[in-house]
Design a protein around this nucleic acid. Structure first.
Length: 775
DNA sequence: TCTTCTATCACATTTGAACTGC
DNA sequence: AGCAGTTCAAATGTGATAGAAG
């Protein structure tokens, strides 16, 4: 079985044990905006629920390449734009794709070995949210976690060369709120916050588990699930960025203007009909018709005398009913946003849209970076990092896009116009040199010429200029990084109910003010009242106040002294009643909602796997997420950086004694401060190399064997890995389970690409989830 | 009972892979 | 084989409406 430790802060219950890590007695305690760590219930889990310690990988040769596996979020800029506003993902019963989609670049894989790529989505916290006053507020405990499902990339298993030669897209993955979903979509609760994760698993590990598993988290990809968009900014962003929503753009036939025109035409037709009816002296409904007519007319431009069904000629409905109108507020906002979005519009964009796009490009060239940087206070030299709450950028998504005009993204390289796949300017933004920028001195990668998963080989990531690679973050971001930062709980003042209406400028400045001046006061002051929990969804970018030194120590340096970790694992055993002295009571109360066994069975059912008996069961322990997974909560969040720790890393740090339980209360984050002292990873048992991690047995199916070339040297060092992108982060245990219904002889690829009902999927190799059980 | 919030559905439009014909 | 045009399922957000919750 595949065992991965998860990113603690991102999970509920047992998986979130690590949440309590970001506290350090020596450093000002920072209160997580959403005290996930406070999942006392999780802490209370008996040790026996923790996943077995990883089996140490004693094979140095294999270790090297694995350790250097890096993942890069290609469309990080787009994600950041969304996250700065508060990414929302529609979920429907039938399943809805994610937009933006995850577009990734992998490097550091052994070109000869086969890997399986998995996507799963885990709760970012244990709260339920509501959109109020222009922001998201936690309004209670999360619903019981549903069995986790994993989306297996259709290309899996594929060689490292395959994965590294192209953009990897998970846009086929669908989200659903149908708990009875049988299509294999990822089941999520509405109005909850989630964090996608990507796992890279060596296929050979299915046969002989012992390493080769890497999990990656991009905090900017956190999102809230909704059944209908709550924040119109998100809607506007989606419309502007998603080709499928092109029709809703201002120039589209489904734009509000056009829709209004259509509606008016309908009303007009109705009116005419009514007029005709009204002309009938025998019509007893005259009064009603008149009312309707009046109603209809009220919304119409002056029309010629409609009496008796007279239809004026010469005046087309279009002309009559759709007079030119100045941009309404929404349109104006849209335009302003558009100008800030580095969208690679289709060539099809014409007229106004093209102009808008051009404008966007131009503006992004000139303003993108500066604006971006300007929003970051030169703060946080304290490794604090994680931020703060509503970072300036959080609301200033418009400024995030920093496309490089000189490096126009290849339209083909994007499934969707990737707004920022190419935002090299960020790296160059040394001028404004805000700490965060410096930290992110790297540039955003330019999208590869070809599309994701396209069969044709693309330039390997290595071909991408190193400048476009994200530097490895020295340490994983703290648990609060994704969770807290993304949903900063602004102070009441920060939480203006008028966020929707805030101008771009206000968006840029308002949220950041607290951050700048007060550090986390805005988000962490944790007012006792619930409004304090309101936040401007993620400010991921803002979360990166600290520049990442190029010399940052890669996470995968397992052997080196553990990076500091602010937390200890003793949290596991903390009593459920544990209270955080510095945490507002309401937060304490809701931090431990529903701690049920339902929390996550991260079990992956891989069809054709034998050993059903083993696979079929998922003891709670199998998905228990030791706090260990929390590599480094204090590390400043890096935009688009991925938190990742290879399994071997997990192993290396798994046995370090945990800090005394008593430390938690003492080390609770100080609401008023944002700095989280770093803690030695070694302090975390899970990160103690001495503690062997016993990976769960990997179930495999004979059908997979042929694809896995045993003869391949498992230890082949990969070709020179490109500059570190994202270090792997530890993930929770993930199990590959056998699908009893699947054919044993069908290789993964075939399963995933099997056509449903005999038709080819019109939009590419769709993963036929129905053929596999993914739970 | 009323209000508010959330979920669902149909709708019009767009996309893009597959299909067809030259 | 290659190209262009057509077909059609899937995907998009919108708006109306139903249902649940308070």
């Amino acid at each position: 079985m595949l065992s991965m430790e998860m990113y603690p802060s991102l999970t509920l219950g047992p998986q979130r044990i690590g949440d309590c890590f970001y506290r350090d007695r020596q450093a000002p305690a920072h209160m997580p905006l959403f005290p996930p760590a406070c999942d006392v219930a999780a802490k209370a889990l008996p040790q026996r629920l923790l996943p077995p310690p990883p089996v140490p990988n004693h094979d140095p040769s294999t270790k090297t390449p694995k350790d250097e596996v890096k993942m890069e979020l290609e469309n990080a800029s787009l994600w950041k734009q969304f996250s700065s506003v508060g990414t929302e993902m529609i979920i429907t019963k039938k399943g809805r794709r994610m937009f933006p989609g995850l577009r990734l670049k992998l490097s550091g894989l052994n070109p000869s070995l086969r890997y399986i790529l998995l996507l799963d989505i885990i709760p970012a916290d244990n709260s339920r949210y509501r959109f109020q006053g222009g922001g998201w507020q936690a309004v209670g405990g999360a619903e019981a976690r549903l069995p986790d499902r994993v989306f297996i990339h259709p290309d899996s298993p594929a060689t490292g060369a395959h994965w590294q030669s192209r953009t990897i897209s998970f846009h086929y993955a669908k989200l659903t709120n149908n708990t009875l979903d049988s299509q294999g979509h990822i089941i999520l609760h509405s109005l909850h916050r989630y964090q996608p994760r990507v796992h890279v698993i060596e296929a050979r590990d299915v046969l002989r588990w012992g390493g080769g598993q890497h999990s990656f988290v991009f905090p900017e990809t956190q999102f809230l699930t909704v059944t209908a968009y709550q924040n119109n900014k998100i809607t506007e962003l989606k419309i502007s960025a998603n080709p499928f929503a092109k029709g809703f753009r201002e120039d589209g036939m489904n734009s509000k203007k056009q829709r209004d025109a259509r509606q008016k035409r309908k009303i007009s037709v109705l009116t005419e009909t009514l007029d005709i009816v009204n002309c009938d002296p025998c019509d007893s409904t005259m009064t009603t018709s008149t009312d309707l007519q009046a109603l209809a007319l009220a919304s119409l431009p002056p029309l010629p005398d409609p009496s008796c069904g007279f239809r004026p000629e010469g005046a087309s409905y279009q002309d009559t009913l759709v007079p030119e109108q100045p941009l309404d507020l929404g349109q104006a906002f849209m335009a302003s946003q558009m100008s800030d979005i580095d969208i690679s519009m289709d060539d099809g964009m014409q007229g106004t849209p093209s102009e808008v796009a051009n404008h966007m490009i131009e503006r992004s060239d000139t303003m993108g970076e500066p604006v971006y940087t300007s929003t970051f206070p030169a703060i946080q030299n304290n490794s604090s990092s994680f931020p703060p709450a509503p970072l300036p950028q959080s609301s200033s998504f418009s400024s995030l896009s920093a496309p490089d005009s000189s490096d126009p993204s290849n339209p083909q390289s994007m499934d969707y116009p990737s707004i920022l796949s190419s935002s090299p300017t960020l790296s160059s933004s040394t001028t404004t040199t805000t700490p965060s920028l410096q930290q992110t001195s790297f540039t955003f990668p330019t999208p590869p010429p070809s599309n994701s998963s396209s069969p044709q080989p693309l330039l390997s990531s290595s071909s991408t200029p190193s400048a476009n690679h994200y530097h490895t973050i020295p340490e994983p971001i703290g648990p609060h990084t994704p969770t807290d930062a993304s949903f900063p709980a602004p102070s009441p003042t920060c939480q203006s109910g008028l966020q929707d209406q805030m101008s771009v400028h206000s968006l840029l400045t308002q949220p950041g003010q607290p951050l700048l001046g007060e550090s986390m006061t805005c988000g962490n002051n944790a007012p006792s009242d619930q409004s304090s929990e309101a936040f401007i969804y993620p400010n991921i970018l803002s979360a990166n106040p600290d520049p990442v030194p190029v010399t940052a120590q890669p996470l995968h340096n397992y052997n080196s002294p553990a990076p500091s970790l602010p937390c200890s694992l003793h949290a596991h055993v903390a009593p459920p009643s544990f209270a955080f002295s510095s945490v507002p009571s309401h937060m304490q109360n809701r931090s431990f909602p529903k701690m049920s066994s339902s929390y996550a069975h991260h079990a992956l059912h891989l069809p054709n796997l034998s050993h059903q008996g083993q696979a079929s069961t998922f003891p709670p322990s199998s998905f228990t997420h030791p706090s260990s997974s929390f590599p480094h909560p204090h590390h400043p969040f890096q935009p688009s950086s991925c938190l990742a720790v290879s399994s071997s890393f997990q192993q290396s740090v798994s046995s370090v004694p945990s800090m005394p339980p008593t430390a938690h209360p003492q080390n609770l984050p100080n609401p008023s401060t944002s700095s989280y002292p770093s803690v030695e990873i070694g302090a975390i048992p899970q990160f103690n190399p001495a503690a062997p991690y016993r990976p769960e047995m990997v179930l495999h199916h004979p059908s997979l064997l042929p694809q896995l070339d045993p003869s391949l040297p498992s230890n082949l060092p990969s070709s020179t890995p490109p500059p570190a992108l994202y270090p792997a982060f530890p993930s929770y245990p993930l199990r590959l389970c056998q699908d009893p219904h699947s054919s044993l002889s069908i290789p993964f690829r075939h399963l995933y690409r099997q056509h449903q009902h005999g038709h080819a999927h019109p939009q590419g190799p769709y993963l036929d989830m129905s053929t596999r059980a993914v739970f």
